Simulated assay, not measured.
Amino acid sequence: MSDFRFQALEFLRRLLRALDPVLLLVLLTLMGYALVIMGSASPDRMDSQLMHGAIALAAMWAIAAVPSQRLLGLALPLYVLGTVLLVAVELFGEVSKGAQRWLDIGITRIQPSELMKIAMPLMLAWFFQQREGHVSWREFVVAGLMLVVPVGLILIQPDLGTSLLVAAAGFYVIFFAGLSWKLIVPVALIGIVGIGSIIAFGDTICQPEVDWKVLREYQKHRVCTLLDPTQDPLGKGFHIIQSTIAIGSGGVTGKGWQNGTQTHLSFLPERHTDFIFAVLSEEFGLVGTIVLLATYLMLLVRGFHIALQAHTLGTRLLAGAITMIFFTYAFVNMGMVSGILPVVGVPLPFVSYGGTALVTLCLGVGILMSIQRSRLAKQT
């Protein structure tokens, strides 16, 4: 019995050695929070969410146990595989709800764009590490081209939300690699002017006969709905109107668990996925929102701490980019649910219902743990 107990303890010790305790605590807090909210928003999906969580945690542990340099060594094959699969989606993919995003591989359907959320920052971090000390404008041009190809393939599916996330993941690596502010500021100014023009001339350019050329019709409707959701309160503006009502009605302490009227009277659509933040705000109020934000802040602080202490350029770039991806998920989701950003179908990280996004995000946490573990191993 004592031998069995010793072996069990030794196995547990080796299992936990790959895991960063701070990241693990933050992750379990977010996933526990998710289960509480899911118990109100959609109790019948609790079992599925528990299964998704178990798979995601197993995937996180598996990645955390792999040395960070070996992960970077997988960058090129993963990037090539992801790009080939995206081309296959364009040629042979299945169409669902007007979008061609899925690929049937016989035993199941896969969404290759999810792979690129991890493969893209991995590839660019590996690329810049290979050229450490010799980075010039040419490297940034090549990195930009490597980013544009998969983002373009995802955008034409169409999948604006995922394309933005993949683009952001790649941009963060390029930015941390030393992209000059002289290139960033003009693009930012053009964006500000463009957004200002849309706001100023929204009544004119949102007319049905106006073709925006660069955006599809449904994307135009999302932007125009953001500018004035009351133009179609029972149609395209319904999501934003109901979610902002739910958020505002929660007050300071909320209406209480399972007492949200917008949620339980079925006014709030997609309440278990993209709009779960509105459920949280209605039932737990400002206090619950602050707790969630504080937990995300702990995740970001720990992620940046790991990035700053990483022992190679590639791992520093990768850890910084992944941490910023977590921020992007949270910012975009809460922004669109609050009515300050267009609805683009981005889940609330670690909280929204769904398996694919949860596994992808937990793989990101696993990469951070791998980087931290490799740094500690280097010191001993």
Rank of each mutant, 00 (worst) to 15 (best):
G339E: 10
G355S: 09
V346S: 07
L317A: 12
L348A: 05
T360H: 05
P342G: 08
L299I: 15
T356P: 07
V343S: 05
G355E: 00
V344Y: 00
C362E: 14
N333G: 10
M324G: 04
L318V: 01
L300I: 10
V337I: 06
I322W: 10
H305D: 15
G364V: 13
T328V: 07
T328M: 00
L361P: 02
G335C: 07
N333P: 13
F350R: 14
L318K: 10
M336K: 08
F304R: 04
L348Y: 13
L341A: 11
L358Q: 14
G335A: 06
L300D: 00
G366Q: 15
A310G: 01
G366D: 15
G354S: 03
L341Y: 09
F327G: 04
I306T: 09
P349M: 02
F326A: 01
F304G: 01
M324A: 07
L361I: 11
Q309S: 07
A357D: 03
F326M: 00
Y329G: 03
F326E: 02
I322Y: 00
L341C: 13
L308T: 10
M324W: 04
L318Q: 15
S338K: 04
V301K: 00
I322P: 03
M324C: 07
G339D: 07
L341G: 12
M324Q: 07
T323H: 03
L361K: 10
T360K: 11
L358T: 10
T356H: 09
V301I: 14
I340W: 13
G355N: 12
F350A: 09
V365R: 06
M324T: 10
A321T: 01
L299D: 09
F350I: 15
V346R: 09
G335D: 01
Q309A: 12
L313Y: 08
Y329I: 11
N333F: 06
L299A: 15
L318E: 12
A307G: 00
T356R: 11
